[in-house]
Design a protein around this nucleic acid. Sequence first.
DNA 1: TGTACATCAGTGAACGCGCGTTCACTGATGTAC
DNA 2: TGTACATCAGTGAACGCGCGTTCACTGATGTAC
Lengths: 206, 206
Amino acid sequence: MTKELPHHHGNLREALIHAGLQLLAEGGPSALTLRRAAARAGVSHAAPAHHFDGLTGLLTAIAARAYQAFSSQMIRHREAAEPTDVARLVGVCQGYLAFAKEDSGLFHLLFVSSDVAREDAALMQASGLAYQVLRDACLPFSPLGQPDPEIEIAVWSMVHGYALLGLNLPDSPKRMIVQIPEFEVLLKRIIANPVETPLALDRDIS
Amino acid sequence: MTKELPHHHGNLREALIHAGLQLLAEGGPSALTLRRAAARAGVSHAAPAHHFDGLTGLLTAIAARAYQAFSSQMIRHREAAEPTDVARLVGVCQGYLAFAKEDSGLFHLLFVSSDVAREDAALMQASGLAYQVLRDACLPFSPLGQPDPEIEIAVWSMVHGYALLGLNLPDSPKRMIVQIPEFEVLLKRIIANPVETPLALDRDIS
DNA sequence: TGTACATCAGTGAACGCGCGTTCACTGATGTAC
DNA sequence: TGTACATCAGTGAACGCGCGTTCACTGATGTAC
């Protein structure tokens, strides 16, 4: 807590990013301000101006870092799954949901916050890598063996909506539903029965 | 603009709600404050305290009104659709998406904002009615002829995720997708091929 | 119908808060010679 | 190896901003008699 770093911090930029990640994890989106991040990093509130272009700059750098954690979470769940195409896609989605639930402050930053410079190069690269994980997992289910926007958006929309309904759903409608089904069950409605090739299923229907 | 209403406003509560709806529509979630709503209603900034329990009270009243508009939008699209079960469900979803797109400030208030008193009775009633519209539209696709959480959550998650990705998606991943499919196409993956009864499809596969 | 009075719904000044930002400054670091 | 000096990375005081809230007040409304 007490830092004896004399005047020059050494790596304040990195320290501010980590402080911001902590603040978001602890108090949600509204908990992160420049002044608080500076205080958490043990530095005066004017110091961040030497490293970031205002609050937006700090938020953008944190968002890029958060996308990396997001990708890692999806990959971790994928690698822990059975080595089948279905299990790996389910795993990626479970990583998506786990990140949304466990790091909801970061999830909000990635998908909701309007204070992030979305055009930032590092951020765009990090987000592109994250979405590539999801797309790769969808590839085995594309009818032509190449990326298929239809299945990608179907899976992506469903997992994203499921994540956000779980996070933000008012209690009233939640109570209207007797039991929330597992996401895996919902997902299989999409991937097990491709509309285009109903005869190519590996379930025997004859 | 210039109001000659002398001291007593008449129906300030209603005027504040409408001012808030306007502010949200014009400037998004951050544009609505007590002071601005009061100014828009042509009244001093201290006046709202006589009608609402702080900012949260005003936001909650606005959210209840927004749920009514949300329901209306879904019903309007449903009634404009062909009188088939599929077309009506597609219509309800298109109403859902239209509301999210056209009234994104209100949509944010309903599903994202943390400044709303979710336990408010009027709000819970309004949200319950809105969700009932979606549930009713799903009913014809439930295998047992009674509400089926699985299909409801599947449809709900997908339409919700599709709406939010369309609103908040960073440009980078958007550019990764060649063409965003229409929601109707995605929806039919869910409702046309129920997992439980693959042989009961009305498409001929023999 | 008239009068006294309680209640209601506004006003406007003031408060404290945390915020991002600016500014002159100073101590530490790095470099040229 | 030393020395002069430019540059960098901090400090802390101060600024203005808009916010929600409080407070004593006052004009308008409604009611009892």
